[in-house]
């Protein structure tokens, strides 16, 4: 195999490298994910996992009907997720559309919580490169600390890997110092082999994070897909020494699911990745379930959704 510096020197070599990646054993990956999700996490380990999961959340609102008021409410929730319990940790970031970045940035000032913005014609990514670059620059200019870009799935699926690579690299430049998360939209990539190739492609092109989904396509994040992506970042770390993060987004709604992901992270990529810098959940309703489980552990009885803020 060529060294990693060489594989990006031409589209031909890149294609040869990506197509030469070993195939994913589909049955094996699903069985492994199913086994990991049966682990029983209780008492102090559970308390640790719940707090860690809260710290890993990118509290997200990506609706056409988003208003500055909704974003302000979300930011207040990000700062203090459980008004009744000041020991509840803050989330990692708030994720919004580019036009609401300035609102979120202002609301989160001084909190240490990042503002993430989707960009590049999210969620479809069907736009010219110039517009995608400008979209990214707008978000960063408005104060986004993290940029969530989507790849051109049409180009990827038709084998134009060079085009996808160049786009990610161009957005990487446009994003400047902002953290770049590359959304693979695994629900549209169809096979695990494609997920592995897209993961490597994104990492080679300069992604800081690889992210499963936009949340607009079903299926969104699944445990086996996340497992394949975690294997990719682990292998990339072995090859280069660099730590790339993973973000699972869409469809993770319960604390139980979140803990399954954390187990998978620990067992696949390793304990280094049990860190909000390297693993994130893209979610909104997940937070309340984590808080309810947290309250259940603290008080010994089940709380109700009436006692938590709306999401």
């Amino acid at each position: 195999m060529d060294s990693l510096a060489d594989v990006t020197s031409s589209e031909d070599r890149l294609r040869r490298f990506l197509l030469g990646l070993p195939g994913v054993d589909q049955v094996g990956a699903e069985a492994r994910a199913a086994t990991l999700s049966t682990r029983s996490i209780k008492t102090t380990a559970k308390a640790y996992a719940l707090d860690l999961a809260i710290q890993m959340i990118d509290l997200t609102t990506l609706e056409g009907q988003d208003t500055p008021g909704k974003v302000r409410a979300l930011c207040a929730k990000a700062r203090r997720p459980d008004p009744a319990d000041p020991t509840a940790p803050q989330v990692a970031a708030v994720c919004v559309y580019p036009d609401l970045v300035a609102t979120a940035k202002y609301e989160l000032r001084g909190s240490g919580i990042n503002v993430a913005s989707v960009a590049t014609a999210f969620p479809s990514g069907r736009s010219s490169l110039a517009i995608k670059v400008q979209d990214t620059k707008d978000a960063v200019a408005a104060g986004a600390d993290e940029v969530d870009m989507v790849i051109d799935r049409g180009a990827f699926l038709s084998g134009r890997y060079g085009l996808v690579f160049d786009e990610i690299a161009a957005i990487r430049d446009a994003a400047g110092d902002a953290h770049l998360k590359v959304i693979l939209e695994t629900g549209e990539l169809v096979t695990y082999d494609n997920v592995r190739r897209a993961s490597w492609l994104a990492m080679l092109a300069g992604a800081d994070f690889i992210k499963t989904s936009t949340g607009k396509v079903s299926p969104a994040a699944t445990l086996p897909v996340t497992l394949v992506m975690l294997e990719a970042v682990r292998d990339y770390h072995e090859a280069t020494g660099l730590h790339i993060g993973v973000k699972s987004a869409g469809g993770i709604r319960t604390a139980k699911d979140a803990i399954k992901y954390l187990v998978t992270v620990n067992e696949t990529a390793g304990p280094d990745w049990l860190d909000p810098e390297l693993f994130r959940f893209g979610a909104s309703s997940l937070l309340n379930d984590l808080l309810m489980q947290r309250t259940k552990l603290a008080t010994g009885h089940y709380p109700g959704p009436d006692y938590f803020t709306l999401d």
């Binding site: 009885h301 009436d306 006692y307």
Partner: peptide
């Protein structure tokens, strides 16, 4: 006891 102490009941 779990139902009696459940805050959503």
């Amino acid at each position: 006891p779990w139902l009696a102490s459940h805050l959503d009941v």
